[in-house]
Amino acid sequence: MEIEYLPIYTPSKEERENPALFASNVRKLMAKALELPLIDLSFDDREISLSHGPLSIHDDSSLLQFHQLVCCLGLRAERTDSLLQVQVQRARDLQGERVNLQEVSTFLNLSITHTLTEVHSLFDQRGDGLIDIRLFVIALSTVHRPSQAMETLKLAFKMFESEDNGYVLEEDLAAILEIMLGVRELDLSGLFSALSGPETAKITYAELHHFIEQHPHFVQDYLDFENHPRKFSQTKNCNGLNHGKED
């Protein structure tokens, strides 16, 4: 370990009057000396990065970006469980109808700004200017309570499940988990093969909750997605030797 002592930093008059400015300038000097980039992360961001549990966030990059935009919109203080429930009901009432930027601003009671446009674009998967507002609510719940993923999953089922039997279709569950885990190209064939029930393309919250409780390594063992950790652990051991099957 190498320790470098930087010159004593004496705050200017402006910095003495503004401690946040003082801290920011010292931080920049430290980053420059370490040759490291500056990344603005809050305490809430830390909670997102360190989420745990069977549905812990796999890749936090997109959710951290979303969270910072949400904070810029002033929605941090409004992220309460009761408000989420209201948004869940309003999103469910849309019955999967995709909405444009103006409708999103109405849904959130916000003016259209550059930041809101950025948020909207994060969910514009088809590039047609329309988004599924249910996915926004799921992302909001995920960053609001990153260590309570099962509560977010229950909330998601309320928006996507059939009114008749409480089932969520496989493709909808894939979309839900992609948002919650921060992954892409999620494949649920492993999960539904393990369930091996009469219905292989849909599932209830109770069934999924029970399955996850029985399989604490649910994500690692039953899901597949781009850059899944399983894909990086099959080929080499600690000595760098390839132990995969030979062709």
Rank of each mutant, 00 (worst) to 15 (best):
N18H: 12
Q87S: 06
L41V: 04
F232A: 06
M180H: 08
V88W: 03
L36D: 03
E178Q: 15
P216S: 07
D40Y: 14
A139F: 10
L195N: 04
K28L: 11
F218V: 07
A20S: 10
K202W: 09
T80D: 02
R92I: 06
N100K: 12
V104A: 00
G96I: 09
I179N: 00
Q214L: 15
R90M: 10
E47P: 01
D224R: 13
E4M: 13
Q125H: 14
E151I: 02
E199I: 15
D93C: 04
D221M: 10
I112A: 08
I48M: 01
M180D: 02
L69I: 06
D44N: 08
G240W: 12
K13M: 13
L50P: 02
K231Y: 13
Q102S: 12
C71T: 08
H217A: 04
L34W: 14
L110H: 14
K13H: 06
S51N: 03
I8S: 10
N100H: 12
Y9D: 02
E199N: 13
T117I: 04
M1E: 13
I212K: 11
A139G: 12
E213A: 12
Y5T: 07
D59K: 12
T204D: 05
R76G: 00
G244A: 14
S56P: 03
E246D: 06
S49F: 11
A201F: 15
C71G: 01
R46P: 00
D60S: 12
A139H: 00
I48T: 02
D40F: 13
G182C: 03
H52I: 03
V183I: 14
A194E: 13
L208M: 09
L153I: 04
R126L: 08
F232N: 05
F22K: 02
M1Q: 14
E161V: 04
I3M: 11
T152K: 05
I133R: 01
T115N: 10
L116Q: 03
H215R: 12
V183R: 04
T152P: 03
P229T: 04
V219D: 03
L169W: 05
D59P: 03
K202D: 06
L75R: 01
L181A: 03
D59Q: 08
P216H: 11
E2K: 15
R76A: 07
Q95S: 04
Q220F: 13
A194Y: 15
T200E: 10
Q95V: 06
D132R: 07
H52S: 11
S111V: 10
V119S: 05
E97V: 04
D124M: 06
F160G: 02
L64S: 05
E151W: 10
